[in-house]
Design a binder for these strands. Structure first.
Lengths: 232, 232
DNA sequence: TACAATCCTGACCAACCGGTCAACTTGCAT
DNA sequence: ATGCAAGTTGACCGGTTGGTCAGGATTGTA
């Protein structure tokens, strides 16, 4: 996500656009470290706060406190609240594209799709806040990442859909609309992160145990595979 | 939802708690009409705005403009922004419980579940904003409707789960966890309302056509029925 | 040590927002 | 017509929030 840095960074005087002597590289490396470490701390705190309160509900003061920094320091690294939000989103999106590698023409459909679902479910469990930030952005019309959806994500889904169509033509599974299949998989997995209060309430628990998630995962895998006519 | 009125209404002086003569009923009816008409207008505008911007992102001024009323008038009918939000949520929740009537022991599983999915999908299409308001509330931890989830919704799902367990024991379908089945159905249907930007972007369209939704619905029905071992 | 670049921060401000209120109009029974 | 309750509204207010800025502290080099 090359846009991240240019978006996230504040305009420190002449930083990055001034030619530097070769021997000054070490300096910049150390400065870079301070920078990236601070940015990482801020991003982590921001992700938590944005996930809980959304963009409008989150306050820079709250994020600053969560990061253990004075508020003005946030504005040193991220010019505006919107820029910080974009940076959090960029980090989230980088998680999103992953895990589809196994969906290839020469792969076994049951294994490939099953492992994809398992990976997605694991992702929503380990990166709950990222999932919520993403969901929030969707809910509000995806004003910041619309272009990403129409280009990168669409291209990826188009490619993987061709794989599934190929599987269907080879008789390995039913001829189904791969795109809607992805929508269902995404929705069914993300719901355990985004709608956790509902899930917990209906199950009569206060939190989602690993075992419960495991059960949900395997049932979903079974349902998708059988529902797609994949012999398991 | 009896709590709605007491929550939503402003404390007009002595309204509702003063004994009235029987012949004054017509008066109150007309006053009630003004009241309910105004409340309905405000609620409709609020649902749209809350759906787009969330609770924190929405402003009373914006809602007022959408309703074509001065801001102070909103506060006449709904004391606070939170009370207005609660009223919108209550309206949303009343939609939520419906449509499960068909899931009965003596029903045919394929028909009952299939029609339930179709009804849910229709609901997300016709009440997109309501779905988004609900999703937003979930995302932020369901602070306002936690009790509803743990009581009414849980009771309903418990009851319907027993029906599905019964179907499984009679050999009409596989023995699956009914609760997770509901989570999957809810997620897969709501995603077409809540994540519409993603769906449209991946499909390469600007809006979801009725035909596209129809296709998604039938594929989901087929997947759920076959995935649950229900003979179709 | 001297310097420059980067990093850090307390104090401050303008804009916005939810909510109030006093004054006004409308509707309706007598 | 009269009077009162209900409905309506412009103007206003205090608190919050994103963002700024001047100046000090740190870091690393020459």
């Amino acid at each position: 996500m090359p846009a991240t840095e240019s978006l996230a960074r504040a305009d420190t005087p002449r930083a990055g656009d001034v030619p530097r002597a070769p021997d000054s590289r070490n300096v910049m490396r150390r400065k870079e470290h301070i920078r990236s470490a601070a940015e990482a701390d801020i991003l982590a705190a921001a992700e938590t706060v944005f996930a809980r309160a959304g963009f409008s509900g989150a306050t820079m003061a709250e994020i600053a406190e969560a990061a253990g920094l004075p508020k003005a320091n946030l504005h040193y690294y991220f010019r505006t609240k919107a820029a910080l939000y974009r940076a959090v989103l960029d980090h989230t999106l980088s998680l999103w594209l992953a895990e589809t590698d196994g969906i290839r023409i020469d792969a076994d459909p049951a294994l490939a799709l099953g492992n994809y679902i398992r990976a997605k479910m694991r992702l929503t469990a380990t990166h709950r806040d990222a999932s919520r930030v993403f969901a929030n952005e969707m809910l509000h019309g995806a004003p910041h990442i619309g272009k990403y959806l129409r280009t990168e994500l669409k291209a990826l889904v188009d490619e993987k859909s061709r794989v599934i169509d190929h599987w269907a033509r080879k008789g390995l599974m039913d001829a189904i609309d791969a795109r809607h299949l992805f929508f269902t998989i995404w929705a069914a997995t993300q719901t355990y992160a985004d709608f956790q209060p509902q899930v917990c309430a209906v199950l009569g628990k206060t939190r989602l145990s690993r075992a419960e998630l495991e059960r949900a995962t395997e049932q979903l895998v079974r349902m998708v595979l059988r529902g797609s006519g994949i012999r398991g």
